[in-house]
Every structure is written in C-alpha cells, then in structure tokens.
C-alpha cells in the first residue's frame, strides 16, 4: 500500500487520458469542478468541457442531448445532487432512452464529513439501480476507479459511477483489470462471505485478517459493479460458505445489501447481516468519527461475520 488517493482524484486522472484518446469524450460539471476533479479536463480540453452552473437537472438533460449526437458525456457533481436532485432527469432523459451518458458522482456516503447530512448521499445506489438498464459502479480504490472509468467509456449505455471525497489506500496492483459485472474474489474462505463495495472493501480485508487470526477463514468479494450484479459469484459464495455479510457506506435499504439479498433469497437462502447505514441520515463530523458512529468499521464487519456464522 502506497499513498492514499481519493477515488475522485483517480476519476480526474482517467478523464485526462480519455480526453486524449477519444475526441467524443466531453465533460459537464455543475460548479464543482475543483471538487469533482473535472477541472483538469476543463483546462486541457476547454472546448469539450461544459460548465453548467448550479443547475444539475439541466446538466443531466444536456448531457443526454450531447449523447444523442454521438458524444460520450461524463456529467459530474456530488452524488446527492446527481442521483437525488436530478433523479427525474437521470430517469427520463438518460435511463429511459438508454443514452450513452456517464454520471460520475463524487462525495458519496458519510465520508463527506463536516458538510453534514444534506451533502451525505446514502441512497444513491438504491435510486440508480432501480432505473432499468442503468449500470452502477462503486470502485474501492484509485486503481479500480481509473480502470472502471475507462470501462464505462467503452460501454454503450448509461453508467452511474459512485466516487468518494476521502483519500483511500490503494489496494489493487497497477495491472489490475476489473470487468463491469464481474465480482472480484479478494480472499478465499469457507466460514462466511463478505460482499463489500467502495470504501468498505479495504475494511472487509482488514476484518478478514483479524478473523483469520482467530481461526475463522472468510471469503471476501469486492462488488465494484452493483448492477448488473454478478449473481453467479454470489450464489457460488452463498452455497460454499453458507452465510453472507454485506458492507457498504450506504443505507442498507435497496443498496448493496438489498441487491445481494435479492439474489440470495431466490437462489441460495442463507443467513445475512448488513454492515451499512441503518436507515438514518448522516451528520457533521470527521469521516473516521462518522464511520465509527454509523458502524462502518472493520470491527463491525468482524462482529457481523461472527453473528451470521452463529445463525448458520
């Protein structure tokens, strides 16, 4: 593990390469380009950057219009505005006509920190995955982010990419090649499976190490694609380990927890536990303090694994 890098920074870096490689890539932002890290693209490719002002609804429908003419628009703002405020535009202007728009939403989850609940998006996975045909990506580190941004650009259709504000450890090697729709097994074990996404993936690995020291070997699946979900990998894991814990920086309702549960109950019913926000809004505070308060820690995953094993 080297320096910490925020997934939003990796997104900004990926945009620069996409800008150089593909003249059809365009970027839109709603007055947050320094925070969403689209500012680098704006400087390098000013003709292909569209500042839309604080008007997220307009930004999303404009991106849709650009996509009808063959452009590959990346529209960025905070997750709370992209998926929340502009939900109807994402649904009707982008999702329904299945246009080739990429929504790269930063500042997802409670690790936004001090800005508080108004800016801490904990329901975007639920909203976005409920739109038919929408791909929902939730990378766990900078390497995975960069590769998934390239994959999103190659994919034909709408994609929502969930990114964070906080710098994270890099957990994947530089030659890592994630594939949209394919879960990644980070650790094998037979006592239980942890399905983790985003910032929780690293915590799942730490939890797995702690559990191993106590003689409990768990499987860790990194779910970078929440939709289309790798159902086969989850069914195999449920059957092999007999218990599943999900871990996400998001409300459990309809999030990764809901998505995995939908697969498990229909195919391989096993006990499940959810390490997730328990249906309450965030609040101001340092990200690490909030992650403790909302039970989004390696320790919480360890406890959930023990609990789910007891229920087997």
């Amino acid at each position: 593990m080297g320096d910490k890098i925020a997934t939003r920074d990796a997104y900004g870096k990926a945009l620069l390469r996409l800008g150089a490689e593909n003249p059809d890539v365009v970027v839109l932002d709603a007055d947050l380009s320094k925070s969403t890290k689209t500012a680098g693209f704006a400087k390098e490719y000013p003709d292909r950057f569209f500042q839309m002002g604080i008007a997220e609804a307009d930004m999303i429908s404009t991106a849709a219009g650009l996509a009808t003419a063959g452009k590959i628009p990346f529209a960025s703002t905070f997750a709370v505005f992209a998926a929340g405020r502009a939900y109807d535009q994402v649904r009707n202007s982008v999702g329904y006509p299945h246009l080739n728009v990429k929504i790269a939403a930063t500042h997802a989850g409670i690790t936004v920190g001090e800005d508080g609940a108004s800016h801490q998006m904990i329901e975007d996975i639920t909203l976005m995955r409920a739109i038919p045909g929408m791909v929902v990506l939730s990378p766990a580190d900078a390497v995975e982010t960069e590769q998934l941004v390239y994959a999103a650009a190659r994919y034909q259709g709408p994609v929502y990419i969930r990114l964070g504000r906080e710098p994270l450890n890099v957990i994947f090697p530089t030659d890592y090649q994630p594939e949209i729709g394919k879960a990644v097994t980070l650790r094998e074990g037979d006592a239980a499976t942890v399905c983790a996404t985003g910032v929780m993936t690293e915590k799942a690995l730490i939890a797995a190490e702690q559990l191993a020291q106590a003689g409990i070997q768990i499987k860790v699946l990194n779910i970078h694609t929440i939709k289309p979900l790798d159902e086969a990998a989850i069914i195999v894991a449920a059957r092999a380990t007999g218990a599943i814990v999900t871990a996400e920086e998001h409300n459990f309702m309809g999030g990764l927890s809901g998505a995995v549960a939908e697969v498990v109950v229909r195919n391989a019913p096993v006990p499940m536990e959810f390490v997730a926000v328990q249906d309450r809004f965030g609040q101001s505070g340092k990200p690490a303090v909030l992650m403790e308060e909302y039970g989004l820690t390696a320790e919480a995953i360890v406890n959930a694994v023990k609990k789910v094993i007891d229920r087997k």
Binding site: D58, M59, I60, S61, T62, G65, A69
Partner: peptide, 8 residues
Amino acid sequence: SAANGMAL
C-alpha cells in the same frame, strides 16, 4: 436542455 446538448 436536451436541445442545447444537441446544438453543442
């Protein structure tokens, strides 16, 4: 908005 995108 969409028409703007087409014009851009």
